[in-house]
Design a binder for these strands. Structure first.
Length: 98
DNA sequence: CCCCTGGCAGTCG
DNA sequence: ACGACTGCCAGGG
C-alpha cells in the first residue's frame, strides 16, 4: 500500500494530461498533505527515469518553472502550453483541475 | 515587492 | 545514527 510519499506523488503526476500542468501544492493537497508541497518538488528531482513521468508538467504555484530544469520550457511549449512575457506558465489557461 | 518561519521525505557521505 | 542538501508554499510583517 504505502510505498512512500514519493510513490504517491508519482501516481498523480503520471495522470497529468498532455498540454496541461499541475502545481506542487495542488499535488500535495490531492494527497491530503498540504504542507508537503516542498516534498513534491524533491520527489520530482529524484524521480526514477524508468517511469517516464511528465515531471515537466509540474510547476510552481506562480507559474514559474523549476530551477535547474532547462528543458522544461521547451517540453511544455511543444505541448502547446502558453507562457506570459515574464516566462511563467499561464495557469489560468492550462491548469489541471481534478 | 522583499524577508522570515515552519512544515518534513528521501538520499548520500 | 547524524547533518546537509534538495524542482515549494502559506502566512505574516
Amino acid at each position: 500500500m504505502n510505498h512512500g510519499f514519493f510513490e504517491q506523488v508519482y501516481q498523480i503526476v503520471a495522470k497529468i494530461p498532455e498540454g496541461q500542468v499541475a502545481t506542487y501544492s495542488q499535488i500535495a493537497r490531492a494527497l491530503e498533505q498540504p504542507h508537503n508541497a516542498r516534498v513534491v518538488g524533491w520527489a520530482m528531482r529524484q524521480a526514477p527515469a524508468d517511469r517516464n513521468l511528465p515531471c515537466h508538467r509540474v510547476v510552481k504555484k506562480t507559474g514559474e518553472l523549476a530551477p535547474a530544469f532547462t528543458e522544461q520550457r521547451a517540453l511544455l511549449e511543444n505541448e502547446g502550453v502558453p507562457f506570459d512575457t515574464r516566462g511563467r506558465v499561464q495557469l489560468t489557461a492550462c491548469n489541471w483541475n481534478q
